[in-house]
Amino acid sequence: MANLLWLQGGACSGNTMSFLNAEEPSAVDLVTDFGINILWHPSLGVELGDNMKALMESCVSGETDLDIFVFEGSVVNAPNGTGEWNRFAGKPMKEWVRLLSDKAQFVVALGDCATYGGIPAMAPNPSESEGMQFLKRERGGFLGPDFVAKSGLPVINIPGCPAHPDWVTQILVAVASGRAGDLTLDEFQRPKTFFSSFTQTGCTRNMHFAYKVSATEFGQRKGCLFYDLGCRGPMTHSPCNRILWNRQSSKTRAGMPCLGCTEPEFPFFDLEPGTLFKTQTVMGVPKDLPTGVDKKGYIKLTGAAKAASPEWAEEDMFVV
């Protein structure tokens, strides 16, 4: 039996909604089949008020073992570093986060806000938000760069806006079933199992990417969304086109550009006007090229690919 406690900071509950939609395994499977005891969760917890506070205090005192502490949302430090803008059970949430993180065997940051600060931490960051162990790309965050949980692992980051439900439940199962040692984390502390490949991996528009045929308007069934509509699939690490959403589709399959929400910089360009759903270019060349591709190579490849493109690549086709 592994005790799990889940709290929310500067959050929209999106990751909770996602978690509750998990299928392989489901949230219920975690309890019935994998021995996870959910001590409390904002949408599932029974305790209220003083009882909730007593539960958390018993985790902090060590009376109740805390195996997994999941935090959703940013750590709010405003105003002036006090954290008073986000109070919970009698004190700033950030104090609970510190106390519980120090007691937990494993700490899991869930969603882009908890991992890297996400939307709340975008400039000018009025809520003084930061992620658990990162602020955007900078390691440190609220818990500091040297933090490790009792298990010896740093914060396990599961980014996404929201994270895919099955990434969450599968990682929780790995932790609860004593296989946390199998989790290899990348430089941004994301489990490599999920975040080594690109969002583009498995995208049904890859043939259009290969032949450099661009989608020029939303709703087109042909064309790659990277060239003009701001898709970040070629430089974003996620399995969105391998582990499909609702077991059916993905953003890019449905014609929606990837926003890069599993990367620390999300939202890119601080959502300045004209940057959303528009590929940013410098002298006509994309500012952000597919990972590992340089400008010269990209230009050469494009010329060759376009010259070789077959006629069918220009035709509308069903890609969902």
């Binding site: 450099k212 045929v213 661009s214 020029t216 308007e217 060239y227 003009d228 002298m283 006509g284 060349v285 230009i299 494009t302 010329g303 376009k306 010259a307 493109s309 006629e311 220009e314």
Partner: peptide, 25 residues
């Protein structure tokens, strides 16, 4: 040509090679 980059329709993302057409709406 600008800064060694030849800006021909042929390599432009809006160009449909077979139809010889600029698809920028």
């Amino acid at each position: 040509e600008d800064e060694d980059i030849e800006q021909a329709c042929e390599t432009c993302m809006y160009y449909l090679v077979h139809r010889r057409y600029c698809e920028l709406p």
